[in-house]
Design a protein around this nucleic acid. Structure first.
Length: 376
RNA sequence: GGGGGUGCGCCGGAGUUGGAGAGCCGGGCUAGACUGUAAAUCUAGUGACUAUGUCUGAAUAGGUUCGAGUCCUAUCACCCCCA
């Protein structure tokens, strides 16, 4: 795996690069659709490739380990073969589930014990075990096992948690180093910066993560409810410390505006459930603002969902039809909306890339950001 | 034509053995939320008005009663049985 930094913006810290993997190249900045349980909900792989233009998708270690289970994924020959997606995959480690399933788990130095959200069975996730599971799943990029701290989080807890995440990282790193990929292609382990919203902790953590000879680095523990200013401040601080020649992945972010602002701060990779989850709830993103397609005002609006969209699906169906599908609770509505939102997110990062290359990124971003949150 | 039954919110249920209702549960409708997915989920509102309150309201019109959605009479509508 190799990252080439091709260009850096002169007015901001935005970058253009290419990450080469054994499953193909990823042009950064990039947005990675989330496919927690081996599927980007409601979207076919061919739609991801042809309509949405996704270059890499996510899976989740915790969910895939519980179902279908690593034995099935090994028999299939890895997640790529199992779900038919032959481009790059990144798996999250289960660190986010330490946060989101907080009341179902206990954290110890050894690892985290979960009560399965499916059947209540108990499972111990250790840094070593999570590396082994991710070897079996076979993603191109795998994530260190961390604790994603909640917001708000008091300083003492944030500091103690961060230090444990660092110790867990060492254990992940060692296990990763002493094991090999199972399916004949390279895997890369990305460590994760923590430290909540505390500058000194973020600095310490970024320095610790930067000391590893990783192929890329991630920033976690943000977009958990903190003010946007805090998110941006922490991102900027951490980006200044992380090595420039390696890709930087901001985990779980975000809104279209968040993504543009964080590209400007030097982030190369993003993932978020927002485009897919909100799509299923009738919330569409466009470059002119957001549409709640369930609203009555769209019932006889026969204009296209997004006449300017780069993808065919958004230029094929009308708003009135899509609203009808949501009103009737027809599955196709959620599928169309998911394709639309993901295609918009991929357009957004692709256009950002072009604007950086052209030297017009800052003006373009500043013009677009206020429009993105307008309600249509 | 005769007999029996049922009528309250946009709809479907529940409930009301004369005593507190703008009112229980679903649905529908109208909005809102959603950031490394326990999420095709969750929350709120949904009689009117001059609106932190007031008024009207249990098919319609009367009656009995301190008090009626509940009892009585008539009418109307729907359902069932008989002819």
């Amino acid at each position: 795996m190799k990252f080439t930094l091709e260009q850096t913006d002169t007015q901001t810290s935005a970058r253009v690069g290419t990450l080469e993997t054994d499953h193909g190249n990823i042009e950064t900045p990039i947005f990675m659709p989330v496919g927690t349980v081996a599927t980007v909900k409601g979207v076919h792989q061919h739609e991801l490739k042809e309509d949405i233009k996704a270059q890499i998708i996510l899976g989740n270690t915790y969910h895939l380990y519980l179902r279908p289970g690593t034995d099935i994924l090994e028999k299939a020959g890895g997640l790529h073969k199992f779900n038919g997606w032959n481009k790059p995959i990144l798996t999250d480690s289960g660190g986010f589930q330490v946060f989101s399933l907080a009341h179902r788990r206990k954290i110890k130095e050894e690892g985290a014990t979960f009560a399965s959200h499916i059947d209540g069975s108990k499972h111990l996730f250790t840094p070593e075990g999570v590396m082994d599971i991710q070897r079996k799943i076979g993603a191109d990029i795998i994530m260190a096992f961390d604790e994603c701290t909640p917001y708000p989080c008091d300083y003492r807890y944030a500091k103690r948690s961060m230090k444990m995440t660092h110790r867990w990282l060492k254990r992940c790193w060692d296990r990763f180093a002493e094991t090999d990929p199972l399916y004949g292609y390279e895997q890369a382990l990305f460590p994760i910066v923590q430290g909540s919203v505390y500058k000194d902790l973020r600095k310490q953590s970024a320095e610790e993560i930067a000391s590893y000879d990783s192929l890329g680095n991630a920033i976690g523990g943000l977009s958990v409810g903190e003010p946007h200013e805090d998110m941006y401040e922490m991102t900027e601080l951490v980006c200044d410390i992380l090595p420039k020649e390696k890709p930087r992945y901001l985990m779980g972010v975000g809104t279209p505006a968040n993504i543009l602002e964080c590209i400007a701060l030097g982030i190369d990779m993003f993932d978020c459930v927002m485009p897919t989850r909100n799509a299923r709830h009738g919330h569409l993103f466009t470059k002119n603002g957001v549409i709640n397609i369930k609203n009555a005002k769209w019932k006889d609006d026969f204009s296209l969902i997004d006449a300017d969209a780069p993808n065919p699906t958004s230029r094929f169906y009308t708003k009135a039809y899509l609203r009808h599908l949501f009103a009737a609770k027809e599955l196709l509505g959620q599928q169309i909306a998911s394709i639309h939102n993901l295609a918009f997110y991929l357009w957004l990062v692709g256009e950002a890339r072009e604007q950086i290359k052209a030297g017009t990124f800052l003006a373009w971003k500043n013009d677009l950001v206020p429009k993105l949150s307008q309600r249509l």
